[in-house]
Design a protein around this nucleic acid. Structure first.
Lengths: 216, 216
DNA sequence: CCACAACCTGACCATCCGGTCAACGAAATT
DNA sequence: AATTTCGTTGACCGGATGGTCAGGTTGTGG
């Protein structure tokens, strides 16, 4: 009886709970529908049905379809940025880039829908998050490029182009989410097993790390 | 004056010309609109405007929006398959895989819209080309995996998982089309120059080929 | 030159979709 | 207990969209 548990907290504040619960419900449904149908193909009615709420209720929490979509995309960007931090803690290339690949592969597995929405957004010219690309993402990328370049200058890495290395990591890791359906089909229609995910991760890390001359 | 040239052929057959011309006009416009807006976001009116034809004329050549979309996707798959043949002609890994990467990078550059439509189709569960995935693509993939595995067995390649190597090549090369907008934004809003494309190609090939232990 | 077929298109229609709103119920505040 | 604020929802609306069609024009084969 979670109802009791929730009420018995220090400050009940039922209203806040309802709001948070419903927003989360809607956001999860929206993420799925946007991923499956794209922004244009998604309908508020479909999202409402999947969330188990009347359509008018969606518009109570999110004024417009675009507002809802914006929130979904922003939430994904947040997760994306969190993973990026795994890059910074490590001092040597193999650890840093390896951990980053690990983190991004985990995200592809845990949030495939989010990754698809992000991909779709960028493919359509980033109408909603263009400013993020130009500010946050650009700064982060430039910073990471500088780090990698330093590693190269110190002789810890082969002299490859850091920018394209980053693109390669993004592309490869996100591929397992964005093209998950294709991968499943080529896997006989079955989702990747735990072992297969490990194999994928290991192969990706192995090829990239050896490819840039970092000890595996 | 191409009109004269066309008419002066053995068999004028104006009708055939008109049909081919208009179909091509529509298909090119459709590819662009589907890439920019997705299937759901694309409208027949928009495609018609871009093709410079009245909307009703589109429905004369393509009965439904789905029929038109199907043709666009199939045409892309055709191009994709052609490039795949560059894999087969080479006897050693570095040449074969290198040529394949080259070919796929060229496609990403020449047909970015097509690549986006393909990506979108797969991301949405491949409603239209599911059977292609299960037959043609699967057979091709299995064949290529066998070839790579043989190279590994012969000691020409490091013992990596061939399947995930293929995925990596697909992901990385198509990334330059599908995420072209993001790449351009991170390039200061400018399209990649000839030199930058070469740099991208070289970096991708260099990392992957070294990563799998094939001489560069 | 005629008849037939292919091509063209403005006007129209049924449907669907995002969004609004008024009326009501439930919770918090006083 | 009264009042106010917040949450809920069925019914509705204007506009856009995919698709149709009848009547026209253009090309082709005889």
């Amino acid at each position: 009886m979670p109802e009791t548990a929730r009420i018995s907290r220090i400050r009940p504040n039922r209203r806040t709970d309802i709001r948070r619960e419903n927003e989360s419900l809607i956001l999860r449904a929206a993420e799925k529908v946007f991923a499956e149908a794209g922004f244009g193909g998604a309908t508020m009615q479909l999202i409402a049905d999947m969330a188990g709420l009347p359509k008018a209720n969606l518009h109570y929490y999110f004024a417009t379809k675009e507002d809802l979509y914006r929130r979904v995309v922003q939430d994904i960007f947040e997760i994306w940025l969190d993973a990026a931090s795994s890059f910074d803690v490590a001092p040597d290339p193999a650890t840093g880039i390896g951990a980053y690949i690990d983190a991004k592969m985990d995200i592809s597995r845990r949030y495939p829908d989010g990754s698809k929405v992000w991909a779709s957004e960028v493919m359509h010219g980033a109408p909603v998050i263009q400013d993020y690309l130009e500010t946050t993402l650009r700064d982060w990328t430039d910073g990471r490029i500088a780090v990698i370049q330093r590693w190269i200058d110190e002789g810890k890495l082969a002299p490859i182009n850091p920018r394209h290395l980053l693109y390669m990591v993004w592309a490869t890791t996100q591929h397992y989410a964005d093209f998950g359906h294709q991968i499943e089909t080529l896997n006989g229609g079955a989702r990747l097993s735990e072992k297969q995910w490990r194999e994928a991760k290991d192969t990706v890390k192995s090829i990239i790390l050896r490819g840039i001359g970092a000890g595996v």
